[in-house]
Every structure is written in structure tokens, then in C-alpha cells.
Design a protein around this nucleic acid. Structure first.
Lengths: 337, 337
DNA sequence: TTGAAAGCGCTAACAG
DNA sequence: CTGTTAGCGCTTTCAA
């Protein structure tokens, strides 16, 4: 009924618990345990289907072989794609992933970190919300490996993997300008996070560099918790009050999707006279008629870098000293369609 | 540096460990511990920022407050949406989710269950692959709560939450027939899983009921690990050899997406002369021009049912006896577009 | 080459 | 009302 313990194995094999433990942990030869004993014990382990209780092991060793993944929303394709890739690589090294969605709520984010702390996860991968700098700082102080991604926390010295969002915003905007757009609206989420800010800065810079004056009225900030209907209403106002708009740059994938639905609903065609650029290369942008140009983030590379950093620190058995913290900024790629 | 333990709290408050433990677990009043003591201890807990070590607690109590979620692929929108909803509800009850993707590989699925077992997760939510019946049976024998979803494992008596895929396949097919389609191709994944089989059975039944003879040549099974290119090649053959096809029913969301890309690449328009029905209502089908009709699964209800069952068994502190196992079959909804 | 035993942090039975 | 203590299953030091 109840799963066998190391004790049961030891008893059955007529050896001590210690011996079993050594065999279990591959220290058998180092301890020069005889071949026969090893074989006998291993057979019994097989026979009884014994699996070490990881909880007990964790309590003893202090590591849980679990990585905490904190994202904004696991159902966002960007995050779920990252989650999938990270899972894969972590799994190969014997790590499991526990995930949680913050919904961009610093209070919830803090609770999640607490929860993971009490569960003693070995490392953290976090798409941070503003306001948890202090919590992360504390993790760092305890020398727990942390990588943040998607967005940087500027006043925190921590490993991060982000893309060059300023460049991303710039290239998207410049692309539109080169297509002859004069009135480029910017639709974004009303959250003060680094990556969104940078996309906006890139947008502004591109306009400036091309001698175009930004029009404040065509800058729309959609609350994070806005429903689709709320979003539609805001977009409606945007277009009604600014009929001169000849293109829109959406700063996030889901806003672009909503935007496309909205445009469809008002039957505003996307064509040579009216263009769209979105962030993240998702199926929905490729399948759209006409296809939508996007700023593509190198998801695989992001995941790879994250897990590399984490595993490296984990194997170094501590977080790196400040000086060696990894700062990875990956390029985005404008996919013109 | 190191987080404080219950011992530290006890020492600081000059009470015994027991007292602190009782306070921590809300048994203070039952044990009639004085108000002042409670207050003092709570203050110290606050002050030191003490969080009980969940690992130690788990070892002691035998439960980890963690639920294992095993899906085919967490980056599939269907699964990530479910994951998100489950997470939310579980979180409110103090449970965390660990996830893993099986990639439809029974060997990997088995390993994952083992891993979760050694980590002592309290309950399992599994989108099963064929071949793990025995492992699930064993979980059940140990009275661990298990819910399977998305697909049923016919010869297993276990809680499940699925949709009526036969009905789903039927309604999709009938819809096409009613639209005057005579040559309905069926594109599916080459994996023998219950939900896919039922979608096919529904397709067949609808054809039969309407006096249409199924054409074996227009039934395409795409290997699960086929690349997009492989898929394209198979579809290419399908259309080249069967020019009479006037509609396609795709049995899975991702195959439909690939199909749409393929059709776009060969510039085959979707219109009154050629129609498509997909499974799962995703943005990509709504945004497509023209929009694609789909068999919609009630994702929220699925997630709700799953977590209800799990939490109920968890609070009953054991898996239900066979007779009371929950068998939930939810209806699908055909969204005509 | 193997065994005994301490102890990771916590809960809860039992004793006072 | 509070303290002492055993023990959850495992790793690892120390001793034999």
C-alpha cells in the first residue's frame, strides 16, 4: 500500500540504510561497496519499485530540484512557449517546474514568491512586475539563483534575459515610416513596465529621427485589466477622433489581437492605406489577411539563455557574485509582411 | 541569512515550539493559549518574517499542497488555458501546480508520474496518453486523487472530465453536409487516443446518417511528431489526388492551423465552394478571413469541473471509492461562421 | 567496507 | 495552558 522506504530496502537486503543510500546516490564505488551488495540492493530496489522520497531528501539536502516560474499569464502564448522550452531543458537535468501567474499584480507576485520560498524552490525564473524589487533583492541576498526575463528591473542587479525592446519599437516604427505612414498610432498597455516603456521609447525615437512629431492623441493606453469591450471602446474613440491615422503599432501581442478583431468589427481594411505592426510572431498574425508585420522575439534563444544561466548557477551551488551576473539582451527581428 | 525556523521564534518569544506550531496552524484557541502569548508570537513571526518550511511540513504531514498537472504540451493554447484556470482556483485553496508535458510519449508520461510520485504531489490532473493505464491504476490503488481530462481511458475506472467528442465530430460534419458538402476530408493526428477516435466516429456517423459514403482516400492521419513540412506534404498529396474535396474537418486545433497555412500557401480560397471546420475556438480561427467554424470546447467548465473534483477528494482526504467516481461529459458547441 | 546515529524543520501525541 | 519528545525518510559524519 504505502510506498517502500529506504529502510524497507535495507532490511530486505540485510544491509544498513547507509549502504542503500550510498548506492542510491552513486557513491557506492567511492565507498567501495562490494559489487554483490550493490547488485543485490539494486535488484531489491527494482523489485519493490522503490523511489526515494524527494521530500525527505529535500529536507535533508536543502534542495528540491524544483524551479519556480513566475509569469504574467501562463496562457499568453509568449509565456507558454517559454514555459514549454524551459520545462524541456530543466527536465533533462532532473528539475521540475512549478509555475504561477501574477496577472501583473505586485501583491500576488509577492505572495507567489513567498509561497515558492516556503516550498524551497532551488531557483526562480521571473517575468517581474514593478514593485517586487525588494523581494527579489532578498532572494539574491540569500544567494538563490534568479533570472528575470521579458522585462528588466532597472534598479536591480540581477541576471536578466530580455530583448532589445527599444530597437524593436524603433524598427517597427521605422518600417511604417518607410512605408510612407505619417500618422502612426501607438496602442499599449497602461502598465509601467520596462519592456513596454522601451517599445514606446523606440517608437518615439524613430518618429523623431524621421522628423515626425508624435501626436499625443494617437497614443492609447489600455488598462491591464480592461475587458475586450473596454478595449474596443477605447479604440473606437481613437479612430473616431483621429481619422487621419494611417497605421497602428501595438505594443503587445494580445492588444494587437484585440485590435484586429476591432478593426474587423468596424470593417476597416488593412491595406496600403492602413497598416499594422504587432509584437510577437504568433499564428494569428501570419494567418491574418493580409498578414501582419511583427516584431519577433527569439523565444527559443530566450528560453535557452534563461535555463543556461539557471543551471549554471545551480551547479555552482549558489548565485553568482554581482560582478558576474548575466545581462543578456537579445535582438528582435522585424518580420515584414 | 538563513531563514528563521520555528525554533528561533519559540526562543525569541520564550515559549515552546509546540505553542508556536499551534498558533501557526490555527489551533491556538482550541488549545486555549492565552491571547497575549498569541499576540506576542505573531508579532515575532511578523518581525522575523518567518514562513514555515513547507518541505519539513510536508515530510511530517504527508501532503505537499501541490497538484501535478500532466498535459500533452503546455504551449498548446487549449492546455495553457486550462492550466491558467486550474492554477487560479487551486491557488485560492493554497495549492500550487507543477506541470509537465508528455509530448504524447507514454515513456515520458510514466517518468513524469514517477517524478511526481517521488515529490509526493497530493493529486494528479492528467491528459493521459495510452499506455499509462497501469500507472494511473496504481495511483488510484494508493488512494491518490486523480482526474483525467481531454481524453478518457476507456478501461479505467477513474474520475474524468471530457467533452462529447463524438457529438462534436458529428455536429461539425453534419454542419458541412447541410452546407451541401459531399466530399468531406478528415485530417487527424495519427495517435490512438480516445478523444480523437470519437471525433472520427462522429464524423463517420454523420456521413452514414446522411447517406454519404466515407472515402478512405480523404482520411489523412498526420504523425504526432510530423513537422510543418511533413504536414504540408501530406496535405498536398491529399488535395492533388482528391481534387473533388469540397471541405475539410480538422480534428485538432494545431492541425487546423497548419492546414490554414497550407491552403494559404497553395492559394486555395475558403469560400462557398470549399469549407473548413476546426476543433477549439482560438483567436486564429476567428480572425481568419473568412472566419472558420469550430467545435468549441467549454474550457472554463472543464477546468472548473476538474478542480472541483480534485479539491473535493483532497478535502475528503482520499480518493473516492469507485462507485462515486465522477464521470463528466460536457457538451461541445458548434460555432458556425 | 559497512553500521549507528544525528539531524534537516515541523507536527502532534502525551505528559504535566 | 505549555513543554518534551518521537519521528516523517533521507544524507552523511564518524566510528568500527
Amino acid at each position: 500500500m504505502k510506498p517502500p522506504s529506504i529502510k524497507d530496502i535495507a532490511k530486505r537486503a540485510e544491509v544498513s540504510i547507509t549502504t542503500v543510500s550510498f548506492i542510491l546516490n552513486g557513491k557506492a564505488e567511492k565507498m567501495r561497496i562490494s559489487k554483490e551488495v550493490i547488485k543485490r540492493v539494486e535488484e531489491i530496489i527494482q523489485e519493490l519499485g522503490f523511489k526515494p522520497n524527494q521530500v525527505a531528501r529535500s529536507l535533508r539536502t536543502g534542495n528540491t530540484k524544483t524551479i519556480g516560474l513566475i509569469v504574467e499569464d501562463i496562457s499568453n502564448p509568449f509565456f507558454s512557449a517559454i514555459a514549454r522550452l524551459i520545462e524541456d531543458k530543466a527536465y533533462k537535468k532532473g528539475y521540475k517546474i512549478s509555475y504561477s501567474s501574477t496577472e501583473n499584480d505586485p501583491v500576488k507576485a509577492r505572495e507567489l514568491i513567498e509561497m515558492f520560498k516556503s516550498r524551497k524552490v532551488d531557483a526562480y525564473i521571473i517575468a517581474p512586475v514593478p514593485g517586487i524589487e525588494e523581494d527579489i533583492r532578498q532572494l539574491l541576498a540569500e544567494r538563490i539563483p534568479v533570472v528575470i526575463f521579458d522585462r528588466n528591473l532597472p534598479d536591480l542587479d540581477v541576471n536578466y534575459v530580455v530583448v532589445d525592446n527599444l530597437e524593436g519599437g524603433y524598427s517597427a516604427t521605422e518600417f511604417l515610416i518607410n512605408k510612407g505612414r505619417k500618422n502612426i498610432a501607438f496602442v499599449t498597455v497602461d502598465v509601467e513596465v520596462d519592456q513596454i516603456n522601451n517599445r514606446f521609447l523606440g517608437y518615439q525615437k524613430a518618429l523623431r529621427d524621421h522628423g515626425i512629431t508624435a501626436n499625443e492623441k494617437t497614443l492609447v493606453k489600455i488598462p491591464f485589466d480592461a475587458t475586450e469591450e473596454d478595449t474596443n471602446n477605447l479604440l473606437k474613440v481613437l479612430f473616431e477622433e483621429n481619422p487621419q491615422i494611417d497605421s497602428v503599432f501595438f505594443s503587445t501581442n494580445y492588444l494587437a489581437v484585440r485590435g484586429l478583431f476591432f478593426l474587423k468589427s468596424i470593417q476597416k481594411p488593412i491595406n496600403d492605406g492602413f497598416m499594422i505592426v504587432a509584437y510577437d510572431d504568433q499564428d494569428v498574425f501570419r494567418i491574418h489577411t493580409p498578414p501582419i508585420s511583427v516584431v519577433d522575439q527569439p523565444i527559443e534563444q530566450i528560453a535557452e539563455k534563461i535555463i543556461d544561466i539557471i543551471l549554471q548557477e545551480l551547479s555552482a551551488d549558489r548565485s553568482l557574485p554581482q560582478s558576474e551576473r548575466s545581462k543578456v539582451i537579445l535582438p528582435t527581428k522585424l518580420i515584414e509582411r
